[in-house]
């Protein structure tokens, strides 16, 4: 019998993997993919609570999360392309356009 705890633990593990990717990788595109992993982890726990409470509001929220993920991916990748055109690297440590 699957319980709510199973879904929450899976969600927590995937979220931590995503955080590790964001903190430890330097490749901007891999960092973006780690953000996608984190958003997916949140979706699992949203729908897990939905199952537990037996109504469908959480699924609407995960639908909105998907919308935000799509918007974030398109704008983020456009920013990466714009920076790449200016300076041919996607190493995050060499991005210093906004440094003060």
């Amino acid at each position: 019998m699957i319980t709510l705890t199973h879904y929450l633990v899976l969600s927590a593990i995937l979220f931590i993997i995503g955080v590790l990717g964001v903190l430890l990788r330097r490749n901007a595109i891999v960092v973006f993919m780690s953000v996608e992993i984190m958003l997916n982890a949140v979706n699992i726990s949203l729908i897990g609570f939905d199952n537990y409470l037996n109504h469908s509001d959480g699924q609407i929220f995960s639908f909105m999360v998907m919308c935000v993920a799509a918007a974030e991916a398109s704008v983020g990748l456009a920013i990466i392309i714009a920076i790449f055109r200016n300076k041919p690297t996607i190493n995050l440590d060499e991005f210093n356009l906004m440094k003060w």
Partner: peptide
Amino acid sequence: VKITTQSVFSLP
């Protein structure tokens, strides 16, 4: 995890 394992949250 400590809070959620105190009791079993079985799904309906």
